[in-house]
Computed example of a mutant assay.
Amino acid sequence: MIEDSPAGLARMFVALARDLEAAKEPTEVLERIVQSAVTTIDGCEEAGVLLVNRRANTFESPAVTGALVTASDEAQLAFDEGPCLDAARHERSFLIDDMAAETRWPRYAPRAVELGVGSMMGFELFAQDHTLGALDLYAHRPGAFDEHAREIGWVFASHAAIALAAAQRAHSLRAGYDTRQEIGAAVGVLMERHRLTSDKAFDMLKETSSRTNVKLREVAAEVVRTGQLPSIGE
């Protein structure tokens, strides 16, 4: 339940920021986002995050609070229309006061009513210069979200987007560091085993990666594990 006083709202968002910052992995951040949305935004009964991969033009639903959200996302992807897709694709927010009277998505809306969606609200998750996806909020009854809930939703989504972007950057940095460490260890193994320079050993890794069509990190892991370069078909 939202505290309406300025002090109450400030305390709520300070607590939210701390909670999201404490989650280091993107998956954990996403779970905390959807759970917190249900507990802090008036009218919200279910929530989900829809992420967009712009290079592949694909979507995924990595965090949902229940089967209703999963079914809703599946319907939107099947029909290639819906409020969550529009929010993620076009950097828009939306408020659907009564899904039964909705006309903007003629194929999705009837399916949403069948699923038990009465009203919806959603916001793009925008960080720096790109959209990560959308935060989507569901209620079973029409008219569940008022203007105050919408304003809180905007601030909530902004906090969520910043926390998610930070977690994704940190995850990428850790993955890159781990990859460099593993490649370095593999180079050391090859240098010792074949009496090579570091450049020659690294070239062997790259050539093997290209020849076997296996990622460089996976080739390095195999060398560290077995002391041998992988062969085609292994």
Results as ranks from 00 to 15, higher is better:
1 M>P: 05
5 S>H: 02
6 P>I: 12
8 G>E: 05
9 L>P: 00
9 L>E: 11
10 A>C: 05
10 A>K: 06
12 M>K: 04
14 V>E: 09
14 V>Y: 05
15 A>G: 07
18 R>F: 06
18 R>W: 04
19 D>L: 13
19 D>M: 11
20 L>T: 04
21 E>N: 13
22 A>R: 15
25 E>Y: 10
28 E>I: 11
28 E>N: 09
31 E>Y: 07
35 Q>V: 10
38 V>G: 05
44 C>I: 15
44 C>S: 08
44 C>R: 00
44 C>K: 00
51 L>F: 07
52 V>I: 15
52 V>M: 07
53 N>H: 08
54 R>C: 10
56 A>K: 15
56 A>V: 11
57 N>G: 09
58 T>M: 12
65 T>H: 07
71 A>E: 08
71 A>T: 08
73 D>T: 12
75 A>T: 13
76 Q>Y: 04
77 L>G: 04
77 L>N: 08
91 E>H: 07
91 E>V: 02
97 D>V: 04
99 M>A: 06
100 A>K: 03
105 W>T: 01
106 P>D: 06
109 A>Y: 01
109 A>R: 02
110 P>L: 07
114 E>Y: 07
126 F>G: 02
130 H>G: 05
131 T>Y: 01
132 L>Q: 12
132 L>T: 13
141 R>Q: 09
144 A>Q: 01
146 D>W: 10
147 E>G: 05
147 E>W: 04
147 E>L: 07
148 H>A: 13
152 I>M: 08
154 W>L: 12
165 A>C: 04
168 Q>C: 02
170 A>H: 08
170 A>V: 09
170 A>I: 11
180 R>S: 11
184 G>S: 14
185 A>V: 01
187 V>T: 10
188 G>D: 15
189 V>R: 12
192 E>P: 00
197 T>M: 14
197 T>F: 11
199 D>I: 15
199 D>M: 14
201 A>T: 06
201 A>Q: 01
203 D>C: 05
205 L>C: 07
212 T>R: 02
221 A>C: 04
222 E>K: 10
224 V>L: 09
226 T>C: 09
226 T>H: 06
226 T>R: 09
232 I>F: 08
